[in-house]
């Protein structure tokens, strides 16, 4: 598909500045709604391109992130519509509601990420290794299980225990407590 718009260098620079600043937040937001790494990567890619295509509709006095999440929301919904046999099968109506609610988290993304980084520092070496493998290297639970000589189930349990502890920790930090 050909895009015949003339390129406005100023607009391009503005877009790239805003996009680059917020892209990781958009990534995190998408992955919260599309748990699979590879699917989320595809949705992010589509979102990024759609953001540029729609950038002319962005009001310069508005916040970029909520606008970008609005665009991402449509790509998330499109993803779930086209992958009906995938694991997550919320009804379409509910997904609409959920993703609207998720846009409301835009203001929380930065403080939560900062708190999460702090909380991760408190984890054991083993748990940090798990993050490195599962989230950094995108190793599957089976591969990690093999490396750790544990069962796949045990790896999933470790992920679960860690994520729950991190949620508690993040909430505590955001509420001013010191976990």
């Amino acid at each position: 598909m050909k895009d015949d718009r003339p390129i406005d260098p100023e607009m391009y620079e503005q877009f790239l500045t805003l996009f680059t600043r917020d892209q990781l937040r958009i990534v995190a937001w998408i992955r919260a709604l599309v748990p699979s790494h590879t699917s989320a990567a595809d949705v992010f890619q589509e979102t990024s391109l759609e953001l540029w295509r729609s950038f002319s509709t962005f009001r310069p006095d508005a916040d970029f992130l909520p606008w970008a999440l609005g665009v991402a929301r449509h790509q998330v919904l499109k993803h779930w519509r086209t992958t009906k046999r995938d694991r997550l099968t919320f009804s379409e109506e509910f997904l609409h509601e959920l993703t609207v609610e998720a846009i409301g988290l835009a203001d929380e993304l930065v403080p939560r990420q900062v708190a999460l980084d702090e909380c991760v520092k408190q984890l054991s070496d083993r748990q940090r290794d798990l993050i490195h493998r599962f989230y950094g290297d995108n190793q599957t639970a089976a591969v990690i299980a093999s490396a750790w000589e544990r069962s796949v189930h045990a790896v999933y349990k470790s992920l679960k225990v860690m994520r729950r502890a991190l949620l508690e920790c993040v909430e505590a930090k955001l509420s001013g407590q010191t976990p």
Binding site: A28, R31, L98, E108, R112, D117, V120, H132, R163
Partner: peptide, 28 residues
Amino acid sequence: YLRYALVHGQLALTTVGLPETGLHPLSS
């Protein structure tokens, strides 16, 4: 639900999840 899922979403962007890159979540 969303805040819990966000832990999952943001873990890949922690310093442990993004090692050896120098990349980090940006403040506003």
